[in-house]
């Protein structure tokens, strides 16, 4: 893929990339930094991308790694929590907010599969590529994540 094609891909997906980064670091400034650093890093590595159809999981892998590195740097400092939605809702909405909060607190490797599979609608094979693991590991992480979230499996179509 050439630079122009990559630039179009990034512009079309910039909102998704920001949301993915933000889901890890929950800080506007850090998420912007991560998107920026990921784009620059991806452009350096672009000649190594052999299959253009894999651009999304390929880029998401860089983005997720940058996000985890940011969390790693932050370890030992106060967690940032800029905009978790207010918890003054009731009923089903409150339940969803509580579950979203639980997703945000999952260990990174489990959060990655939940965010990419269910929020970004990526195929499990693509999730595996983005997470740098094989398909069966991605699947087992997904089941483990759902177990940690204590959700009813029947409500979640794991798919492939």
């Amino acid at each position: 893929m050439r630079g122009e094609g990559f630039a179009d891909f990034v512009r079309q997906n910039e909102a998704s990339f920001y949301r993915i980064a933000f889901s890890y670091v929950r800080s506007r400034e850090d998420a912007l930094d991560i998107v920026q650093d990921s784009i620059e890093k991806a452009l350096r590595k672009l000649p190594g991308l052999r299959d253009d159809s894999r651009i999304k999981p390929w880029f998401c892998r860089i983005l997720v790694n940058e996000s985890i590195d940011c969390l790693r740097r932050r370890r030992g400092t106060e967690p940032v929590d800029e905009s978790l939605p207010a918890a003054d809702e009731t009923g089903r909405r409150a339940e969803a907010l509580a579950l979203y909060d639980a997703v945000s607190k999952l260990p990174p490797k489990y959060k990655t599969v939940i965010v990419l599979r269910f929020f970004e609608d990526m195929k499990l094979q693509e999730v595996a590529q983005a997470a740098g693991c094989n398909l069966s590991t991605a699947k087992s992480r997904l089941y483990k994540a759902l177990e940690l979230l204590r959700v009813e499996l029947k409500d979640w179509e794991v798919g492939l």
């Binding site: 949301r19 889901s23 939605p85 089903r92 909405r93 339940e95 969803a96 907010l97 579950l99 979203y100 997703v103 965010v115 269910f118 929020f119 959700v151 409500d155 979640w156």
Partner: peptide, 9 residues
Amino acid sequence: MKDELKDIY
């Protein structure tokens, strides 16, 4: 529930 979560995201 999955859809509500996605909406929040």
